[in-house]
């Protein structure tokens, strides 16, 4: 379990912003915060205001804004999609 990672794609409308491996993704949906670990069940969630926090494999944290987008997770691949997405 510990060696499993998530593949994360952060995508804006006009470009792919970031892509890489991560241990955990925390995002704020319209219902509240959600944390995604490897082997999470497939999910499609609408993102609310707030940032997406990605914990990288080496423990480093990456923060990104992804306003009014959505997030999909399947087979350990997380795709965060927003009109304007950017790393902070």
């Amino acid at each position: 379990m510990a060696d499993k990672t998530l593949h994360v794609d952060l995508v804006a409308q006009d470009q792919a912003v970031w892509s890489g491996e991560a241990r955990m993704v925390i995002a704020k949906t319209v219902e509240g915060e959600i944390g995604l670990l490897p082997d999470h069940e497939p999910i499609l969630a609408i993102l609310g205001e707030g940032e997406v926090r990605i914990t990288l494999a080496d423990g480093e944290q990456l923060r990104a804004s992804a306003e009014g987008g959505f997030l999909s997770m399947e087979r350990n691949t997380v795709t965060v999609v927003a009109r304007n997405a950017a790393l902070i």
């Binding site: 219902e31 497939p42 969630a45």
Partner: peptide
Amino acid sequence: YPLYEFEPDATKVLDAL
């Protein structure tokens, strides 16, 4: 397509998507 779980629910997701 895998069987997704929708957050908050399918209709709202479709509304936003």
